[in-house]
Design a protein around this nucleic acid. Structure first.
Length: 464
RNA sequence: GCUCCUUUCGUCUAGAGGCCCAGGACAUAGCCCUCUCAAGGCUGUAACACGGGUUCGAAUCCCGUAAGGAGCGCCA
């Protein structure tokens, strides 16, 4: 907290109750970018006050995911589960000021009340049952064995106003806000409470978070005021939706970062895609994180929800793969390369196929072409090859016998022997050698598969 | 039910009353280049949710409708 007042401090505050997905990742990215563009700090806070749902393995996964994305946090990680003493102090302050009161209603009672209100066509808000209990009433409920929660006493009148970084001026009526729980029956701090306190105490200046928090912001502002804490400036990011506009679901689009990473997506591709979801930019092409940070601007944040389009992500991914260094590309394909492959052959294979695959799994057919059996051709390929005829492939085989894997010499020889040129010449050869109409350049591919393998493929067709 | 948010080409978006019969990027189609793919170049197709106002003039302001979303939790 020695930061100068002008320093931007942002944070990412996930709860360790699940894996990071695209939505979370974008929130993290934006907060990171916002901090970095002005040389500020990006903090990581684990919101694990709910002992039931929080799992240590998720915390570990979270950290690994952020590292992988290239979004390292500054300073120590704040774990809310270890901040009981800080919260206790704040609870005491609120109690002293009469801003909170014990509520003895059970979860079941609350649930029934909610349902009743909903059925009656009213907002399902806390009814205020325990708002004005006297000391005697409290004692008797305690005697019944009820464990109280602490509720914040929302002012009866008035309104809460604030300026949202994305949505502009916001006004909420206190009458629409029910008294909410700040301390659970087990004594732990609830979200609104711990979230506001930790933001203030760690000097967070700006919070970019999901739009699902927008209508809850007045609660936090009320709390901050009662605690005499400075609330951060909030910016509420529109949600990312599936291609059909529905919320990202497990079934569609909500792939976890882990899944994406395991299938071979590159962090820089993800970051570039996410950067343009809900944030407009003049920037074109794949950019480094540094360039993205420089270009990031909260005034360019978009209000309307953005759809996650797998096709767009693929465009970034392809670009990112093309830019991989030979070593990085090798590393990237490694999980799909046979371990028996000699290092030199692996290196050559990567160099030849890199520009032709988007995900590492796509190298399988090329592995077959280079080191195994040629895959069967499609209908177009079959037609092309039979049109070329056995004598064409006989000439090709002869050319290979004479020239080894010298692609240029081979094509020259076949051209001279058959009079074919251009696509007429190359297409049947490509199909014969690879079984496919598209693929990496043939010259290096031929070297990779070797003369004997090529010869076998051509001779088989010459004999047909 | 109440409160709040959102609605421009297929997608991401520009647009803060005349500069917009709406611009860019990606995708897509065609052409050029080329052994295929990729890369690159050129050209094209394609959008202001709907209805009312306000105004000389509206994608932009106001009202309503529709559609989608969020919140109203001892989840975060």
């Amino acid at each position: 907290m020695t930061d100068a007042p002008t320093t931007t401090v942002t944070r990412f505050a996930p709860s360790p109750s699940g894996e990071l997905h695209l939505g979370n990742a974008r929130t993290a990215l934006f907060n990171y970018l916002l901090a970095k563009r002005s040389g500020g700090r990006f903090l990581l806070r684990i919101e694990d006050t709910d002992a039931e749902r929080s799992k240590p393995e998720y915390t570990a996964q979270l950290k690994a995911d952020l590292q992988w994305l290239g979004l390292p946090w500054d300073g120590e990680i704040v774990e809310q589960s270890r901040r009981g003493a800080v919260y206790a102090e704040a609870f005491a302050k609120l109690e002293q000021a009469g801003r909170v009161y014990p509520c003895y209603c059970t979860p079941l009672e609350i649930e029934v009340s909610r349902k009743t209100q909903l059925a009656a066509g009213r907002p399902p808000r806390y009814a205020g049952t325990c708002r004005n209990l006297d000391a005697h009433q409290r004692a008797s409920r305690l005697a019944e064995g009820r464990k109280p929660t602490l509720r914040f006493r929302v002012p009866e009148g008035g309104r809460v106003e604030f300026v949202d970084l994305v949505h502009g001026e916001q006004v909420f009526d206190c009458a629409d806000i029910g008294d909410f729980i700040v301390q659970r029956a087990d004594g732990s701090a609830a979200f609104f409470f711990s979230n506001v306190i930790d933001d203030a105490l760690t000097g967070v200046t700006t919070v970019l978070r999901g739009e699902d928090h927008l209508s809850n912001t007045p609660r936090q502002l009320l709390l901050a005021m009662a605690l005499e804490l400075k609330a951060p400036t909030y910016g509420h990011l529109s949600l990312i939706t599936s291609a059909d506009g529905s919320p990202l679901s497990k079934r569609f689009g909500a792939k976890s970062l882990r899944q994406l990473r395991e299938s071979g997506y590159l962090p820089i591709a993800l970051n570039n895609h996410l950067f343009r979801l809900g944030h407009s930019s003049e920037l074109h092409g794949l950019q480094s994180l540094e360039a993205l940070a420089t270009a990031f601007d909260t005034s360019h944040l978009v209000r309307s929800p953005a759809r996650f389009d797998p096709v767009q992500l693929e465009v970034w991914q392809r670009d990112a793969v093309h830019r991989l260094s030979p070593d990085a590309a090798l590393e990237w394909m490694k999980p799909h390369l046979p371990s028996s492959l000699a290092p030199e052959a692996a290196r050559e294979f990567v160099a030849v196929t890199q520009a032709n695959v988007v995900l590492p799994a796509e190298i399988e057919p090329w592995l077959a072409v280079a080191f195994g059996e040629v895959p069967p051709p499609d209908a177009e390929g079959a037609a092309l090859m039979s049109a070329a005829g056995p004598e064409f492939f006989a000439a090709a085989a002869a050319a290979v016998r004479a020239n080894g894997t010298d692609w240029k010499a081979i094509t020259q020889a076949v051209r001279d022997a058959t009079g074919r040129k251009g696509p007429e010449l190359f297409k049947p050869l490509r199909y014969a050698l690879t079984g496919q109409g598209h693929g990496p350049e043939l010259a290096p591919l031929l070297k990779l598969m070797g003369a004997p393998r090529a010869l076998q493929r051509l001779e088989r067709l010459a004999a047909a």
